[in-house]
Design a protein around this nucleic acid. Structure first.
Lengths: 238, 238
DNA sequence: TTTAAGATATGATATTTGTCATATATTGAC
DNA sequence: GTCAATATATGACAAATATCATATCTTAAA
């Protein structure tokens, strides 16, 4: 079916401990068990991990990579709802509530992702109170971000939202070794689909931020030159 | 402190069974126990049940009434995030994650509300898998609505969002006995704070929908005259 | 009841943003 | 490497929406 590259199996124990994964609350033995209920693959840029309305097959754990979660609005326009990164798990909501996926998950760059068997995860999640709590915290965080997005879309203009998005991308995906370049590269269209505006407006306002020296556009890269002014542009109280 | 009118205690058993409350998954004995860990009160229109940033004191169950959940944006403007009604529980997220409230809850009309003791509810919620699942479904629904709100704010114009909001209010709070009048009365300002626009735009567009015969404005009441055209105005695929 | 405060209504105008057209640059397929 | 497809860029203009001003209506308080 899909043209997935099967990957050498990752070790869940290493993975869970290296970071902030939800599984870090489990015992080593429990984590070890996950190894026998998962498979790993590489998703190339643009490939779907799952699609809106489909039935979940398991839990996706991002080992490395960047994933966008989006939906299609009434007029066929894409809306990016969330962005996920290394150590994040995605698709857990549909598993926990036994519903279909409400969003599609698409790789923004080549990503190494493990898939944990549906039944194994669901059983574990409901059996282990520590894990339940972590998953509840996860969805609560997703809700918090969604609510912030609502306030932003309602009350901020496009310039403020762009600045905010740049700061968010920095906070989420970090910077390259130079300490200035955003690690993630979104197309102008993805940018627009994230902050709720037109591609042209994104291009125009990024170019304006570039002219004013707050950011620098070098090819596809975006460098953040003046964080303070970017924060002020985003109209964020610190 | 607060000028709350203490109420004759409601019977949780009757309450849980009359509707779609999360507690309907519990046994009668368990529900009976809740009676001993709650108090009931009337909140007058405009009163706060709890405020943003405060520590939760318990779980609020709405017996009758209408509550808005809102936050204040950077420029001091209110943003209504959710609306709650009879049978809904609110404030559960902060309880489950042991965080402060992120939203304020304000009565839109005089409301009869019970408060279940914090520790009692949290213990019960984590002990009873059935209840855990229901609470997870609740937050999942809140997330779904928030995500829909994001798409709407990003992709629809104010006219479409107003029409959508009217349909949402009808779906949530229903109609009066005449089968036409919305049961809830939002001020134009609350309306604006909900759909993310200015009060004047709400007034203008409601008045336009009135002129075109889709709705009818009678004093403070809003009558829905032509649902089909309202759905078309909202640009919803059915 | 009277009065003041607040809510609703409407017009005029400014601002923001989207849309369309077109040019240039970049990328990927062959 | 060449060419086509796609992405980025920019200007001109139109449309949507916010803002400000002011009038009227409604509600709550004295």
């Amino acid at each position: 079916m899909k043209n997935l590259i099967q990957l050498q199996q990752k070790n869940c124990l290493e993975c869970a401990l290296k970071g902030h994964s939800v599984f870090s609350v489990l015992s080593d033995e429990q984590i070890e068990k996950i190894n026998h209920h998962k498979s790993c693959a590489i998703y190339k840029k643009g490939q779907y991990l799952f699609t809106q309305f489909s039935r979940p097959v398991g839990l996706f754990c991002i080992y490395t990579g960047k994933i966008k979660l989006s939906t299609i609005g009434t007029d066929g326009k894409e809306q990016i709802i969330r962005l996920a990164k290394d150590g994040d798990i995605i698709g857990y909501r549909a598993l926990m509530t036994e519903e279909h996926h409400r969003l599609s998950a698409i790789a923004l760059e080549d990503s190494s992702v493990c898939l944990i068997e549906k039944d194994f995860f669901v059983k574990l999640a409901f059996q282990e109170p520590q894990l339940s709590k972590r998953v509840f915290k996860l969805i609560s965080e997703d809700l918090r971000k969604a609510e912030e997005q609502i306030v932003s879309l309602s009350q901020k203009n496009v310039r403020e939202r762009i600045a905010e998005a740049l700061l968010f991308l920095k906070a989420t995906y970090g910077l390259e070794a130079d300490g200035k370049t955003l690690s993630v590269r979104l197309s102008r269209e993805d940018f627009a689909d994230y902050i709720g505006t037109s591609t042209e407006s994104v291009i125009r306002l990024l170019s304006e931020l570039n002219s004013s020296g707050i950011i620098e556009l070098v090819g596809k890269k975006i460098l953040i030159n003046d964080i303070e002014r970017l924060v002020r542009t985003a109209n964020i109280i610190v």
